[in-house]
Design a binder for these strands. Structure first.
Lengths: 249, 249
DNA sequence: TAGATTGTTAATCGATTAACAATC
DNA sequence: TAGATTGTTAATCGATTAACAATC
């Protein structure tokens, strides 16, 4: 938000030019918007591969087909894939296995990124048990909270630790991604502690802007903001609930 | 996405030109990115107003100050506000009350948008009790689930209903926003039912693309995608956990 | 070869930002 | 008036897309 998440972000981020893959192929800098879509292609493609695992169905897919599955324009998809340097076959399409490999490699999707969640309320607990984490290379290695009533409890198999021990716990567990699910008033303080622990990637579910150094990436998931966007859409459509009820009958 | 976040969206959305406010002032079409930031300004500004409620502090704020609070460039902020037609005072700044009024009006933030949540697992339950909803004009009026073990239970003060009654329940409750928190395999089916119930705004926490008509707005909140974006950032920085531990000592 | 689809170019579109005349 | 800040212009930047030569 695009979103966007679609939260306001510091847009002047350096695009990290001149990288290269493990295979040594040089890459152009990949735009943020493209990275988000690459992740989406990866997800769609792994899902589809599972579906057609049994049948010996074509291990090749066209940009048009993948584009439709992903809900994007096929020209945009080809442009996105061109950043990977991964070669499709003109007149044929993309080899699914090769493409998956290139996507995983480009996104670092084969690495493990240990996660800490701070703020183990309703939302934090739900996140701790969420498949999106442990299932896919983001094991939850630490849960932290300030409430003595919650400290010591086991949530999704992990013991909740006192937030004052964040730095030690995160370093011990090799945490590289911090998730903030605290009330807003605590968020900046928690972010500061995570920074001290060496965390440079933060997923923030608390509303409001975090102040962090330039080399720290913050992804904002703002529920209230999403709802306001939908509200704006409702307003724009000009449909009141009452009017809709009438129309639907 | 963020965005928000930043999920791939059908970009060819009609920008809804030629609206007008309740005061009759004609408005240019407001870009999506601007709408997201307007919502953010509204949030920041209401928070700050609460803080300075007691003190008779300046009821005026400059674009520079609000921009810093919101983490954006002040030129961008002024451009954003210019879409509201709300007049600041050159040499002085913006009257806070007037600005809040204009923001609320433009975003439809004074209306009530009843919400239904489908899928009352860990995440759905957490959302049902979340302040972001009931607190700010988005009352949760219906909870729906397919699991007979959950149907009939009370979550955050609302009884969970059988998902097969979605259409009737949503119409009765005047639901205008549907939240999907089901497993992915059920998401499209749930979306279809919500459409039948007249819902035209959907907040989707399930990964994967929903196919919906053009006049339906879908905001995607994709946890796995956010994590992949952060993973990419980690990869780009080239820091392995081990390396970080060494650096931090 | 004929047919199909890629990768890339170039045009278009939209969003960001510095700068400054207008204004209080 | 002098100082400050707005609203808007114009330049820049980046992202999207149609179109098509290159390629299998």
């Amino acid at each position: 938000m695009v979103v966007d998440g679609a939260a306001p972000e510091d847009s002047g981020r350096a695009p990290g030019a001149g990288r290269s893959t493990m295979t040594g192929a040089p890459l152009r800098a990949i735009p943020e918007a493209t990275v988000a879509r690459l992740a989406s292609y990866l997800h769609v493609l792994s899902g589809r591969r599972r579906d057609m695992a049994e049948s010996a169905v074509s291990a090749v897919i066209s940009s048009e087909e993948l584009a439709q599955w992903s809900g994007v324009n096929s020209a945009k998809l080809r442009k996105d894939l061109s950043y990977l340097g991964s070669r499709g076959i003109p007149g044929v399409g993309y080899d699914v296995a090769t493409l998956l490999d290139a996507l995983e490699s480009a996104l670092g999707a084969r690495e493990i990124y240990p996660v800490a969640i701070v703020g183990i309320g309703h939302l934090g607990s739900a996140l701790a048990g969420h498949r999106g984490f442990s299932g896919r290379g983001f094991p939850v290695r630490a849960l932290l909270d300030a409430d003595s009533g919650r400290i010591g409890q086991r949530v999704a198999g992990v013991i909740v630790t006192d937030v004052r021990e964040t730095v030690a716990v995160c370093r011990d567990a090799g945490v590289v991604i911090g998730v903030i699910a605290t009330p807003q008033h605590a968020a900046q303080q928690v972010a500061d502690v995570l920074l001290t622990a060496g965390v440079r990637s933060i997923l923030n579910f608390s509303p409001g802007t975090l102040v962090v150094p330039d080399d720290v990436e913050v992804r904002q998931v703002d529920l209230a903001l999403e709802l306001h966007m939908l509200a704006f859409h409702e307003l724009r459509r000009g449909g009141s609930p009452a009017r809709w009820e009438a129309l639907q009958q």
